[in-house]
């Protein structure tokens, strides 16, 4: 037990403290101006003093991220089922999906701004775009990777298409869905921030940009810190979903 506290808490903490100490030392010894690199205590002060602002802007970014991600799941999962189960649809769209996946979707941000304005819509569209592809591609791959024997077993029992889907294909694809969702949620945060960079009047990305342009570097660092916390939080949400379904998931799909 004591060993676990050492290895899982104290050592990582010591590593973080070491880096902060190096940061403080560098600011002090090299006499770096606050505008270029604020010392940790100034960032901490910004975090405390501007906590209301950070929370309200963080709330905006969190909503963009989660709404966009949920939209991507709602559209991506059914489409993945359609593409995986219909041979014509698969032939028509799967190569396109793979090709589109490698397009840098964030490059569309300026155009989305033109089409949808500076409000929530353009951010949702960008988050949706970046999150959609890993979800649909991984889910379709998972559905298609269902072992042939299990499908034949179900067919030999005259299972209905719905039974085959719910009892065989879907559970077999679930580990792939989780993998896709983990990639998607990470990209969703990036999409939200890029959307705010390109054109917005709120959100952590906007705050980061305006703080930098006003040379308020401590606030920019505080916003960056808040963004990291947000990213970890949403990733943990997906991880929580995975744990809730853990009785469904094989413990080590990679080894099977």
């Amino acid at each position: 037990m004591r060993l676990r506290i050492f290895s899982q808490v104290l050592y990582p903490l010591a590593g973080v403290l070491l880096i902060i100490a190096a940061w403080v030392l560098a600011c002090w010894l090299l006499n770096i101006p606050t505008v270029v690199l604020p010392s940790p205590d100034k960032v901490l002060r910004a975090l405390v003093v501007r906590s209301d602002l950070l929370l309200s802007e963080g709330w905006v970014t969190l909503r963009e991220t989660l709404y966009g991600f949920v939209l991507a799941m709602l559209v991506g999962l059914p489409l993945a089922v359609a593409v995986a189960n219909s041979r014509p649809l698969n032939l028509m769209f799967y190569p396109l999906l793979i090709a589109l996946q490698s397009v840098p979707k964030v490059a569309l941000a300026p155009m989305l701004l033109v089409w949808l304005g500076t409000g929530l819509e353009s951010k949702l569209a960008l988050v949706w775009l970046v999150a959609f592809f890993p979800i649909i591609v991984d889910t379709a791959a998972g559905l298609r990777a269902t072992p042939k024997e299990l499908l034949e077993l179900a067919q030999s029992l005259n299972a209905s298409p719905l039974q085959i889907f719910l009892k065989v294909q879907l559970p077999a694809a679930l580990p792939f869905v989780v993998t896709g969702a983990k990639v998607a949620i990470t990209l969703a945060v990036i999409g939200a921030v890029i959307g705010e960079f390109v054109g917005s009047s709120e959100g952590l990305g906007f705050l980061l940009q305006s703080a930098t342009s006003q040379l308020d570097t401590p606030l920019a660092f505080a916003a960056l810190f808040a963004l990291s916390v947000l990213g970890i939080f949403v990733y943990a949400l997906v991880g929580l979903g995975e744990r809730l379904m853990s009785s469904w998931l094989p413990p080590a799909p990679a080894h099977q």
Partner: peptide, 9 residues
């Protein structure tokens, strides 16, 4: 079947 083909879940 030749392989057990059980459902891991």
């Amino acid at each position: 079947f030749q392989a057990p083909s059980l459902m891991p879940w």
